[in-house]
Design a protein around this nucleic acid. Structure first.
Lengths: 262, 262
DNA sequence: AAGGCAATTTGACGCAGATCAAAACGGGCG
DNA sequence: CGCCCGTTTTGATCTGCGTCAAATTGCCTT
């Protein structure tokens, strides 16, 4: 529980990847410097030298197959995880076994921060497609951020942004109507895909309608109906999980105006 | 924007307190060491020596009268604030001017963490009763937490707990019925008052029904009706803002069972 | 290619909670 | 003390979304 000044852990087993060449495994270890995500991820804004130091933090990568858990609620916090590729959800669990999706996470995002306070994970993290995450032991991150102020600062920003995101979700759940929620959700996805260099108007929904509904505080039927309605209005084009935004401004207008639920 | 190794700011104007003796002003400056909240607040778990160092962080105290703002949405982040006495709310603002209560805050709690990511406050912070807060400049907190690992660790825990709290609110807003939400809310208040040495069963609601409703994603009439219903069942006794919990277990049962909204 | 299961869509209906309205209450101020 | 205004309560009605149900589609397995 006390701070350990562990600095790098070269002795760890290389990784759990299954069928990779040695060369690739080696590349895996020198993560951040060569990672295309370092402008989005934890090392954002660091100098190349600093990023080299951060490489030592990410000593292990882990593959999580579609449907598998990265961690489970109640489990002790082992590390934080940065998503390198793939798509995940986190679910908060009710005492009575029911669950609610608390967020969807894509590459460059950090998961597990909710567990720092109690050292126990509060949610399940489940891969919605085959994913690849970097394991970042918290102790190491803390000791390194004592040495690299800009890393420390960036880590704080990342945590803070998670809080800000949560406030946005609270707003959505507390005061938006079904179609507004869905519009806000689609705009959010769009923007995040765009930030990663993907199309902001055409993408694949990796989650089911039920998962979208759980996240938005709606039933799957309502999600389906709202999508159909948007489709009928030609605001979007949906076919199963493939989605294209046709009139992004219409979505924006929808989110802006709160007809109901003052 | 870069880290400044500022360490203490003894030169600041003492404080904005209005009618205090010099002795008291002086006492105000040596905040944490003599503060009865240090087990709840930021210095929790530090050694007496470490707390002395932390005293330098809290170089200013600020009084916020009932109804006044501590900070406003959009304003640049000046500092984090630890509540010493009083009671506050934070409100997220819609673009269209509508607002939603994102949280209620009581003594020992830290406010402003949502602003670290963008350096801009995301919510308004308003005092619901005359309050007294400690100003903690973020730069100073960061530089000191580089020197005192247990401070760093505790700060991370505090931020993480805010994230965990938000997840709880998301759960509440996304999947509980009106009376469950209210029960969860009352239990939460009860527990937080208890942690501060106040009665867990009898307290004063400092916020209006409308503010409760805003926080819980309900209309004030619904809040009022739910309170009346609990009262009729003799689960609680409410008179205006005075509230007594008579059957705390009934409230707990209510939160446990999710009749609706799977 | 066929079969089966999960996901999705669509319709009909009901209800929790929003909305509208009005009365009662309480607290601060002249 | 009494007035005024914001807060709260309570009732009546309306509606968005949940619930139930059934048909359709797509995907994965054999």
């Amino acid at each position: 529980m006390k701070h350990k000044a562990t600095k790098g852990r070269q002795a760890n087993p290389p990784c759990m990847a299954t069928s990779l060449h040695v060369v690739e495994i080696d590349k895996l270890k020198t993560a951040c410097s060569s990672c295309s995500l370092h402008e989005l991820c934890l090392p954002a804004g660091l100098t190349p030298d600093e990023i080299k130091s951060v490489d030592q933090l990410v000593n292990r990568r882990r593959q999580v197959k579609r449907g598998e858990h990265l961690y489970r609620s109640g489990t002790p916090l082992q590390a934080l995880y940065a998503i390198r590729t793939g798509f995940m959800k986190s679910c908060v669990l009710h005492e009575d076994g029911r669950e609610q999706v608390a967020g969807f996470h894509m590459m460059g995002e950090l998961m597990g921060m909710d567990a720092i306070g109690t050292n126990q994970h509060l949610c399940d993290a489940v891969a919605l497609e085959d994913s690849d995450v970097c394991e970042i032991p918290l102790d190491d991150l803390e000791s390194m951020s004592r040495q690299i102020p800009s890393l420390q600062q960036h880590f704080h920003r990342v945590m803070s942004r998670e809080i800000a995101r949560d406030y946005g979700v609270m707003l959505l759940l507390g005061s938006m109507r079904a179609e507004e929620r869905l519009a806000a959700f689609l705009l959010n996805l769009s923007q995040r895909f765009a930030a990663r260099g993907y199309s902001s108007t055409e993408f694949h929904l990796r989650m089911t309608r039920e998962e979208i509904g759980s996240y938005l505080g709606l039933k799957l039927e309502t999600v389906s109906r709202a999508l159909s309605h948007f489709h009928a209005q030609e605001v979007i084009a949906v076919q199963n999980k493939h989605l294209r935004i046709l009139k992004i401004d219409s979505l924006r207008e929808l989110v802006g105006q709160h007809n109901c639920r003052a």
